[in-house]
Write a protein that binds this DNA or RNA. Structure first.
Length: 720
DNA sequence: GCGGAGACCCTTTTT
DNA sequence: GGGTCTCCGC
């Protein structure tokens, strides 16, 4: 068989990795070095050259996007559908296993997946029911703690707490939460992995089946695996499978959610006969961008050591722009994008990256003002929207009456006279008698234990759900959704919400019907599940990037985290300020700081042609004005790669001076342009510019050591 | 039981 | 700044 189409497009290093003899392989792949390409070609190689069946191959990724892309590229390369091949996220594959073996995993067949918000609500409820103070036991923190334990493979009974009061409480909450999930047939994200792992540990016969099948396991982004994922792979691999992992320790940015970079180092020890390959040739970025990124990341200790290089040109210098405040920063970025666009470039070739989602608002406003189309990734995703979750809760309750979380969400939405008191009553009856809240309603009505008014309201709700279930029998999936959003009263309810918000919600609900329709066409695979259950699981596992206006050429906005794996011709990194990036919460531990630096490295290496990093001296964030120094990461980039750009107008300070000199306030300024001043922290410098009056007066000083800065006269204490 | 007004809290990244 | 929660009047 001719396999040249598989190996010809590869460079030497890539080819060695792709064609490595069947054994364990660790590929250390730098940013832009063709990581996905190696995985895709390796799979094709296994099938075509080694004649391995697609059925014996399992490829695991972290995001749905990556999984979809890998599958698509494999199919394009082979020119046929990848039948039998398992490609998916850790969570998706765990879910698939649990659906197939729900009984052995001790789950109800109708088990549901909770997203983070569902989990948060559930934990909150547990804390309240235990009579604990949620000021002291903050649901968010507890949630975080429980997830971290699950990621380590620990259940409540595995955790020692001896005389530690705090731990003891945490473990108790954890235990109660576990019990509640089990009662309701609800699984959180971490539980999917843990259950799938436990399933194999408890049932060696099932494990053996999969071990025999998946003799070839491939893992993408290996540096992001956590303890349980590592253990899961290891269990599956057993003694005989060949494991091929690709990763980059410099791009490990998920330590905060349990990812263990150490897993890369461990790999060669845990898997015998591992051959190791390094991909350092970069096909993405210019020499200057790579030089800067290499220099930055060299500040981290604990690296496996890699240096990216390119055959391409040096390209343009990296631009560092010092803005005055966040609005000016945004305007600068948008202007550059518009210029790019006017010179014939696409808007979609531009990405604006930021550390935290809170930064996106100002950027959005600037884009909107200029009528520049944009698209935001992350933030609130489709299936996470309130109205969508309401609709899904109806569908879930129809599918599974024991789903208490869904019950609570919609029992009085739209309001139908079932208030907190009644719900409390239902909840405590359910707890006391160990039945679902649904069943509790039925019992309470039958026993006459509720007021006549509450009883009739509850009965109305029960009838509503039952009637809808009958109503949607024999309907197509999308018709079922349509039926439910109308008959539940959700549409009417949201129609009452005024303004654009309400209209959007209606549109989203209608979009949900469309989502059902396209799910039927594209995503539905025959399996143990009925289509509705599959759709509901899909809604939890894939938050749904799909937004409207996808077709339009638009600027891409996203956090640095979600930019990993992507590339853009021109990249803007906004908010390069101490406290924001590196984030203040990362300052205390050095490990966290290194992770921030890796995040910066990830951001920089997204750029193909041009990288612009901006910082603002003054920023309104979380409703408060803050002043921040430029990020230390900026000063870690050697000057040879950098071009500093100052605020517009300041490049010609003297003309600016003539404009201002007619201004009486400027004339009254305590400093003069061109004057030499001394600042306690920044040393000596020359006054370049001055503006504002009184308390708000600001002065720009070009310091001998650190360059130009805007300072508030009020605080600067300049010595003339 | 319902809805509005104001206090209160947080505030990184996501499958 | 804004989302959530609580309280209060209807």
């Amino acid at each position: 068989m001719d396999v040249s189409y598989i190996i010809d497009p590869l460079n030497d290093e890539q080819r060695q990795a792709v064609c490595a003899p069947a054994s364990n392989v660790l590929v250390l792949a730098g940013a832009g070095s063709g990581k996905t390409r190696v995985l895709v070609h390796r799979i094709a190689w296994l099938m075509q050259a080694d004649n391995i069946s697609a059925y014996s191959i399992l490829a695991v990724t972290f995001t749905n996007k990556a999984a979809a892309e890998m599958r698509g590229r494999i199919e394009r390369l082979l020119g046929m559908p990848s039948k039998g091949l398992w490609v998916g996220t850790f969570h998706g594959i765990a879910h698939r296993l649990l659906r197939a073996h729900w009984k052995e995993a001790e789950l109800p067949q109708s088990f549901q997946i909770m997203d983070s918000e569902d989990q948060h609500r559930a934990i909150k409820r547990v804390i309240r029911e235990m009579g604990l103070d949620d000021k002291r036991w903050v649901p968010r923190e507890v949630q975080w703690w429980i997830n971290a334990r699950k990621d380590e493979g620990l259940r409540s009974h595995n955790i020692e707490h001896r005389n530690d009061n705090y731990l003891q409480h945490m473990v108790e909450i954890y235990r109660e939460y576990e019990a509640m999930c089990q009662r309701n047939g609800a699984l959180d994200f971490a539980e999917l992995l843990l259950r799938a792992y436990d399933l194999w540990v408890k049932r060696p016969d099932i494990l053996q089946h999969y071990q025999a099948r998946f003799q070839n396991i491939l893992v993408d982004e290996f540096q992001d695996t956590n303890t349980i994922q590592y253990a899961w792979i290891k269990l599956l691999a057993g003694q005989t499978a060949n494991v091929f992992v690709v990763g980059d320790d410099d791009q490990s940015i998920y330590g905060w959610r349990g990812a263990q970079v150490e897993n890369i180092y461990r790999f060669s020890k845990d898997y015998q006969n591992t051959s190791q390959f390094r991909l350092e040739q970069n096909y993405r970025s210019t020499g200057n961008i790579l030089g800067a990124a290499n220099a930055l990341i060299a500040n981290n200790t604990d690296r496996m050591g890699k240096e990216l290089w390119t055959e391409g040109s040096e390209g343009e210098l990296i631009e560092i722009y010092s803005a005055f405040n966040e609005m000016e920063e945004a305007r600068y970025i948008v202007d550059k994008i518009i210029a790019w666009n006017e010179q014939g470039g696409l808007r979609s070739e531009n990405a604006i990256l930021y550390r935290s989602n809170a930064q996106s608002r100002v950027l959005e406003e600037a884009l909107m003002q200029t009528g520049t189309p944009y698209r935001i990734y992350g933030g609130l995703r489709f299936f996470e929207r309130q109205e969508i979750k309401d609709a899904l809760a109806y569908l879930r309750l129809i599918a599974n009456r024991a789903d208490d979380a869904s019950f609570e969400r919609i029992v009085n939405l739209p309001t139908r006279g079932i208030g907190n008191k009644t719900v409390d009553l239902v909840r405590s009856y359910a707890r006391a008698n160990d039945v679902s809240m649904w069943q509790a309603c039925i019992d309470l009505i039958a026993n006459g234990d509720v007021t006549a008014r509450a009883a009739s309201a509850l009965q109305f709700f029960i009838d509503l759900i039952n009637t809808m279930q009958q109503g949607i029998e024999n309907m197509e999936l999308y018709e079922q959704i349509e039926h439910v959003i109308h008959h539940s009263g959700l549409i009417t309810h949201y129609e009452k919400e005024k303004g654009e918000k309400g209209r959007n919600r209606i549109e989203n609900l209608e979009e949900l019907v469309n989502a059902g329709r396209s799910f039927e066409q594209d995503d539905w695979e025959e399996s143990e599940m009925d289509m509705m259950s599959a759709f509901l699981a899909h809604a939890s596992l894939e938050a749904g990037e799909g937004q409207a206006s996808e077709g339009e050429d638009s600027v891409q906005l996203m956090t640095l985290h979600s930019a990993k794996g992507l590339e853009f011709k021109q990249v803007f990194m906004a908010g390069m300020e101490e406290g924001l990036f590196p984030h203040s919460r990362s300052a205390d531990e050095s490990g966290r700081l290194e992770e921030e630096r890796r995040l910066c490295y990830v951001g920089m290496t997204r750029a193909m042609e041009k990288l612009v990093m901006t910082h603002a001296e003054k920023r309104r964030l979380y409703g408060e004005e803050t002043y921040a120094r430029p990020s230390r990461f900026l000063s870690e980039i050697p000057e040879e790669f950098v071009q500093h750009v100052r605020m517009q107008g300041t490049a010609t300070p003297l003309t600016a001076q003539s404009q201002y000199s007619s201004n009486p306030v400027a004339e009254a300024a305590p400093v003069q342009l061109g004057q030499r001043v001394y600042h306690e922290k920044f040393g000596e410098g020359v006054v370049l510019n001055y503006e504002g009056e009184g308390r708000h007066a600001r002065v720009q000083v070009n310091f001998d050591d650190i360059g130009s800065k805007w300072l508030m006269m009020e605080y600067a204490n300049l010595i003339v």
